[in-house]
Design a binder for these strands. Structure first.
Lengths: 224, 224
DNA sequence: TCAAAAGTGTTGCAAATACACCCATGT
DNA sequence: ACATGGGTGTATTTGCAACACTTTTGA
């Protein structure tokens, strides 16, 4: 707060870890870069913030552009300044993560990137561009912690789902198995779910009750 | 990651919430501003990052300048971009918080600020400069959460202390009373404390055992 | 009738809570 | 002797973890 230099020569970027869960496997959206320094490498979608755009707006824009959805769960993660991608000046990267359900997505087909797809977090390319390895690791740790004391898991699921699907999603994020009966007891005791009709299509076994969330608002509850 | 504009006109600042605990009251270091837009108002110490200085380095520098200590607990909190203090360009502020023991401090006497002092968090000025109200609230919430599942409380205390002092510090941060016997049981069962001699000076009652931490390294443990 | 997942309760253990009295010291 | 905080143990409650069988449907 002393007299600031007129030119600080710093740029601010936002990177977004977009997660979903398919069949109990945690997936993250990666893009394949076209431009020179990291050509052909996979990376998190991101970019410099626009003039007059807030950090959160920038993260939401990236989410919209790449996954075709908006209004979903979006949380700031951490700010990293390790990367020196730009020879003339440093870049501070503010990382966000988003949670989207595995349906209703329209993956961005912008010419900006060579490819866009979800990767299973356990099978993704080992090396990512910039410091995105670190960012993604951080995001996974945060998500893992967060599903255990909030209801953010809601955001990873479609509007209606079976208890088994919900449990499988938890198992995928937490990377460990859960006891079926204890899980049901716990989840139902929270009183955040509402039942509806039954499911039949495409199962050659007993149909399961479909549930939906009573409220979409983020709530801090001890799930585990 | 499209062709970036050459000039983004963004500045990056770091603000630091420096906490300590005195007599079981959580205190935060505030400075009184000399410069025009917020002249006379109290604020968190902070400033633009220097050329070639990492975010963390900047936070450590502020801590050193204002409290005269280094090497203590320092953690990044959140990045805020609400403030429009600079007419020609926005400022992204990366907030940190630091924990320091209530002794051995040398409050910064730089001519930069009109005054520097610790304020009891419950009695500090209601209005702070910029969006520092929000930052400080966020920091207090994070600290409160963090003392419950890590050993960061260590950083708020002098090298040697009584169990009562430790308990009082927890009570100050958590803003609630704790049962003496349960507290001692719990803390001692973690095996992170080591005893030493006794304390006598300045007490007209039975002296208490002085303890010290077996390790300074941050550890994730369930304290409460 | 078989395969495949849905659904459902009880028990044991560990951790958290609530709670009251004697002890050592300085004045 | 008294005032002040230091120090200690037990009983109860609560939440978590382990565990197996019957039910419903489609093929």
């Amino acid at each position: 707060m002393t007299a600031p230099p007129v030119l600080q020569n710093v740029k601010v970027a936002v990177d977004n870890c977009i997660f979903t869960v398919v069949d109990g496997r945690l997936q993250v959206l990666l893009i394949r870069m076209r431009k020179k320094p990291f050509e052909g490498m996979w990376a998190l979608p991101g970019g410099l913030i626009d003039e007059g755009e807030s950090l959160r707006d920038a993260a939401a824009r990236i989410l919209k552009e790449q996954a075709g959805v908006s209004g979903l769960y979006l949380e700031q993660l951490y700010s990293f300044d390790g990367r020196k991608r730009d020879p003339e000046g440093r870049v501070v990267s503010v990382a966000y993560y988003s949670l989207v359900p595995p349906v209703g997505l329209a993956l961005g087909t912008t010419p900006k990137y060579e490819a866009v797809r979800f990767w299973d977090c356990d099978e993704r390319p080992r090396e990512l561009a910039y410091d995105h390895e670190a960012i993604l690791g951080y995001a996974q740790a945060r998500l893992q912690a967060k599903v255990q004391y909030t209801n953010v898991m809601w955001s990873l699921l479609p509007p209606r789902f079976t208890l088994r699907e919900l449990q499988t999603a938890y198992e995928g994020v937490l990377n460990r198995g859960l006891d079926k009966r204890n899980f049901r007891k716990k989840i139902l005791s929270l009183g955040l779910l509402r039942a509806s009709g039954k499911k039949s299509k495409g199962s050659r076994h007993r149909p399961a009750m479909l549930y939906q969330f009573a409220s979409q608002a983020p709530t801090a509850v001890e799930v585990f």
